[in-house]
């Protein structure tokens, strides 16, 4: 378990990237080492309807600048408050939390990173880590329609990007599991983050093709450090905390 910090981050930039997604860049006096797939708990202030911190996955890190990026979907009052943070505002952050993805892959084959919606956020950092280790990275990203597609330039710098949209407006039509790349899929491991139905469908495909597969789960959380036992998920070994035993689980651990 990595050492956890509670730090005030300074907002360097906070910009809308689509009508519902924004990217927040925070800078810290010291930036701890962050594993791909780890997350942060952000404190929400001045919002009477919000009491708990909000768990947000870490999108990208620039250790040389002591900066990290968070790609956030505006869902409720907590994320709405975050979206209104201005340059030089402070945001209190507890991080890095959770186990992160297992990037130690033995086979010398490409890896496939499958994301849906806001779930694509942690895959950028993951792709950078895998690519820096000399691994060929494919991203398979699913969106509802063209207008929902998030900026993908950074992903394209890291690996090859494949897209599905449910209406077929961009890329292959359908869900990520309908993409044509599956015909000849030969990957060392699949890493995924997105809606649970998407990851469940993906786990079926991964099993059929006998490819190792890790998924990053989300759940409502309170503490984020494994104390309150609110964010549990069912595993073959009973209830486990998404915050500390996860958020990343191998599909073999899950009754999917």
């Amino acid at each position: 378990m990595s050492k956890k910090y509670q730090l005030d981050g300074t907002v360097i930039k906070n910009e809308w990237v689509t009508s519902t997604y924004f990217k927040m860049t925070l800078s810290f006096e010291t930036l701890p080492e962050i594993k791909a797939g780890q997350f942060a708990e952000l404190r929400i202030d001045e919002t009477p309807t919000v009491f708990l911190r909000r768990p947000i996955s870490i999108h990208d890190v620039r250790p040389e600048n002591k900066e990290m990026d968070l790609l956030i979907q505006k869902v409720g009052d907590g994320t709405a408050w975050l979206s209104t943070r201005k340059e030089d505002d402070k945001v209190n952050v507890i991080f890095p939390l959770g186990n992160g993805f297992d990037t130690d892959v033995a086979e010398n084959k490409p890896v496939l990173l499958v994301g849906g919606g806001v779930g694509i956020a942690p895959l950028l950092h993951l792709g950078r880590v895998l690519s820096s280790e000399g691994r060929k990275v494919h991203f398979l990203l699913g969106f509802r329609k063209e207008a929902d597609i998030l900026p993908l330039n950074a992903y394209k710098e890291v690996g090859e990007v494949f897209i599905t949209t449910e209406d077929g407006s961009v890329g292959d039509k359908g869900f990520v599991t309908n993409h044509s790349l599956w015909k000849n899929a030969d990957y060392a491991r699949i890493f995924s983050c997105g809606p649970t139905p998407m990851m469940k469908a993906l786990s079926t495909v991964a099993r059929e093709k006998n490819i190792d597969c890790e998924v990053s789960l989300e759940n409502k959380m309170a503490c984020g450090v494994g104390a309150c036992l609110c964010c549990v998920t069912q595993t073959h070994e009973g209830h486990k905390c998404v915050c500390t035993d996860g958020p990343v689980f191998n599909i073999n651990e899950l009754p999917w």
Binding site: N219, K220, M221, A222, C230, Q234, H239
Partner: peptide
């Protein structure tokens, strides 16, 4: 313990249903 969801956020507080896990 209990099945999930075990957590509900409310204004200025929360409800839990952990059930002594």
């Amino acid at each position: 313990g209990n099945a999930y969801p075990r957590l509900a956020e409310v204004p200025s507080g929360m409800l839990n249903a952990v059930g002594l896990q």
